[in-house]
Design a protein around this nucleic acid. Structure first.
Length: 276
DNA sequence: GGCTTTGTTTTATA
DNA sequence: GTATAAAACAAAGC
């Protein structure tokens, strides 16, 4: 599932392929994919067609494509979304729901097996038009987020640690896979409440969060089933996971069998011996 | 055809 | 107002 490292990998792949290209046509096969402007497909198309793509960036799990007009196109992949750049003549599979034609004979395809992904075409100065984009927590990999800043985020927090890491208001971009891995590396049980963490444990979470997200990017993200980058290639971080999706297998550190529980309704994996 | 899946949004509650 | 948990929702695949 696309989390920060996967979205970052998509953005990095997309950037050289589509920057400075112009959009020549937009085909919307599944209207529900367009979340903003609501019920106004014509306005969506009109703002896009003829515009030039100036920049491609990421904020949390959102992809932000800046156009040379007053609009940004914002895309969220949710569970099974893919953004692929293909030549026009290449085979389009049945889950291709929105197609952006470019002036170089290629097209950007928004592909969604489960149709959970969303596209927003918003005013540059109105991020709130793109769902939760406007009130995300800090970027976990930002140079600006120091250990001191991170510790301050714990003020008044008492949620379960797994829930807190998944909360996009706390920090932006962490999902189910990386939350489990960060907590394992930090030796903290996912069902510990945030107000019981020691200063040392907060520091471990800070460093492991940054370490594991960077490592995920280096490996091109985690591909269990659907995730691929802009070229359609899988990542390899699934081979590096220490606890996620390893129920019943032996912990690499102590040999204890990895447990699977539900936290906040999400599948959660941890080592009952290594994590306190 | 019920269950599972995740990320986000909504609703209820302390 | 703020934080949180629970529920709802999206829809396909098995």
């Amino acid at each position: 599932m696309p989390e920060l490292p996967e979205v970052e990998t998509v953005v990095k792949g997309l950037r050289p392929l589509i920057k400075d290209r112009r959009v020549t046509a937009v085909e919307i096969r599944e209207k529900n994919m367009i979340a903003y402007p609501e019920n106004n497909i014509d306005e969506f198309k009109e703002s896009l067609i003829g515009s030039k793509i100036e920049a491609i960036n990421r904020r949390g799990k959102y992809i932000i494509i800046e156009l040379n007009n007053e609009k940004n196109m914002v895309i969220h992949l949710r569970m099974t979304g893919k953004l692929l750049v293909k030549e026009v003549e290449e085979f389009r599979d049945k889950h291709t729901h929105v197609i952006f034609s470019l002036n170089d004979g290629q097209e950007i395809r928004f592909n969604n097996i489960r149709k959970f992904g969303r596209v927003y075409l918003i005013d540059k100065n109105h991020p709130e038009q793109a769902g939760g984009l406007s009130d995300l927590g800090p970027e976990p990999l930002s140079e600006d987020l120091t250990l001191t800043d991170f510790k301050k985020l714990f003020k008044n927090r008492r949620a379960l640690m797994k829930s807190l890491l998944l909360n996009q208001h706390f920090v932006a971009g962490i999902g189910n896979i990386y939350a489990d891995e960060i907590l394992f590396l930090s030796g903290v049980r996912p069902d510990r409440t945030a107000d019981t963490l020691t200063e040392d444990e907060k520091e471990k979470i800070y460093h492991n969060m940054r370490h594991i997200l960077k490592k995920g990017i280096i490996y091109g993200g985690t591909s269990f089933s659907d995730y691929v980058n802009a070229f359609g290639e899988k990542g390899s971080f699934q081979e590096e996971l220490k606890v996620h999706q390893r129920e019943g297998e032996e912990c690499y550190s102590c040999g204890t069998k990895i447990n699977k529980i539900k936290v906040s309704g999400r599948s959660t994996y941890f080592c009952p011996k290594c994590q306190k």
